[in-house]
């Protein structure tokens, strides 16, 4: 039963990871830019949710659509002003740029909000549900469900809608997408906005489930990269499975070894997986 408990905790944890990783993957796919500032977008989402709750006292889940919309717009502004300039440039340019953004956003947040840890504790979302001897955290269950719905909706959008398909087409071959009449500049803009909104939503969930401060981005970006590598670069489904795998591996490792070692063990397992499957679960060789 304990084992099951640990696995369930891990799966619930994985949902939030998945949302973050999926956004990162989307941005990479379309722009070939590794967004090192992705964790900071999550951090901003967490703060936005916190301040929403702090000011209104309303159910923090209500903040999610607002925060996501704001970050969608904010992400597009950021893309136009900065990221767009490094598209098609050597990878180092985009790494330097996004690393700079990451440092800048963290620094500004530290100045505004200090390293103090914050958390949104909304009474109805505390405690747990007892299901057949398992204790399932309410906040994590809700966060998992939201992460699932948002990821699922994004997936459907990418699979079914014309714009979603245009995003995928651009990711697969930007030049050909362009000669199909797709304004790939706009696709990049929208994709970055979408990725930012997903990161911000993950941030909202982090605010509800965890405690956070301006440096939280770094904790999560590391996980997101591990997930993408594990799931296969550019694969949406792969990222989702990778996220759940990481969540469960972390909690199992913490259970059988220690919390301190769990991350190391989890990463060791992932390296093991990659030795067997170098391109991850769903990785395709880049053409």
């Amino acid at each position: 039963m304990d084992l099951l408990q640990v696995i369930v905790s891990g799966l619930l944890l994985g949902g939030v990871y998945a949302l973050l990783a999926a956004g990162l993957n989307l941005i990479f796919g379309v722009m070939r830019v590794i967004n090192l500032a992705h964790g900071e977008l999550l951090m901003l989402g967490a703060y936005a949710t916190f301040f929403f709750y702090d000011t209104t006292g309303l159910n923090p889940l209500l903040a999610i659509p607002l925060v996501a919309a704001a970050m969608f717009a904010g992400g597009m502004v950021l893309q136009r002003l900065t990221i767009e300039r490094v598209v098609g440039q050597p990878l180092l340019s985009s790494l330097l740029l996004t690393f700079g953004l990451s440092t800048l956003l963290t620094g500004v947040a530290l100045n505004l909000w200090t390293t103090n840890f914050r958390s949104v504790v909304y009474e109805p979302l505390t405690g747990s549900l007892g299901i057949g001897g398992l204790s399932i955290s309410r906040s994590r269950l809700v966060a998992f469900a939201i992460a699932l719905v948002v990821s699922g909706a994004t997936y459907v959008f990418l699979r079914r809608s014309t714009w979603g398909k245009a995003i995928r087409a651009t990711a697969q071959h930007a030049e050909v997408a362009q000669v199909c009449g797709i304004d790939v500049g706009r696709v990049r803009l929208v994709s970055f906005g979408l990725g930012s909104a997903m990161a911000a939503t993950a941030g909202s969930l982090v605010a509800i489930v965890f405690t956070f401060n301006p440096e939280i981005g770094r904790v999560f970006i590391g996980k997101a990269f591990a997930i993408i590598v594990l799931g296969g670069l550019g694969s949406f489904v792969g990222a989702f499975l990778g996220a759940l795998t990481l969540g469960v591996t972390e909690t199992l490792a913490a259970y059988y070894t220690s919390t301190q070692l769990s991350e190391a063990v989890a990463y060791a397992v992932m390296v093991g997986v990659l030795l067997v499957r170098p391109s991850g679960f769903f990785g395709q060789a880049e053409s």
Partner: peptide, 14 residues
């Protein structure tokens, strides 16, 4: 050059 991960119909749709 086609969109390899998309179906024939999706390619045409693009």
């Amino acid at each position: 050059i086609v969109f390899r991960d998309m179906t024939v119909a999706e390619n045409l749709e693009m």
